[in-house]
Amino acid sequence: MTSIAETDLQSFVLLRLGDRRFAIMATQIAELVAPSRIFRFPHRTSEVEGVILRRGRIVPVCDVAEKLLGKGLLSRRFYLIVQRRYGAQTEWVALPVSGDCELINAEMTLPSDTDTPHVSGWLSHAGDVIEVLNLAALTPGPTEAAPTPTSAPMQQEARP
């Protein structure tokens, strides 16, 4: 059984991956940019394709379509740059998207126990039920230890 998280409306950005739409909380969005050159170098994190240069920052590119749709995107129209939290630190991550993005206000329904970890909630918009994405579960990062009740706020891991 699900429950309504907030009675107030919240802002979300709808993004298109292939023929499906997903949502991310608007507070987690940095910007939407045209695709640019991806720089690749050897590494062992398969979810990361490479990096792009944006406003002097080096931003990793993660194609989340692979995880959400089971296949990579055939065409990339934009990179949606999101702010991914790693403990106390926030970094930009570029998500390739295949269509326009839209800012909406909606009420989010909390996920149920049976939802996959990448779902942080659900929206009902224009007749569709849309998954709100949990970036921490969807994009790679160092394994974070579960906080214990007595522990201080989690410290950022220096090196995994």
């Binding site: 931003v59 970094e91 991550v93």
Partner: peptide
Amino acid sequence: PLAYCNEERTW
């Protein structure tokens, strides 16, 4: 970037 979270962090 912290998205790179495997062996490459030591490289």
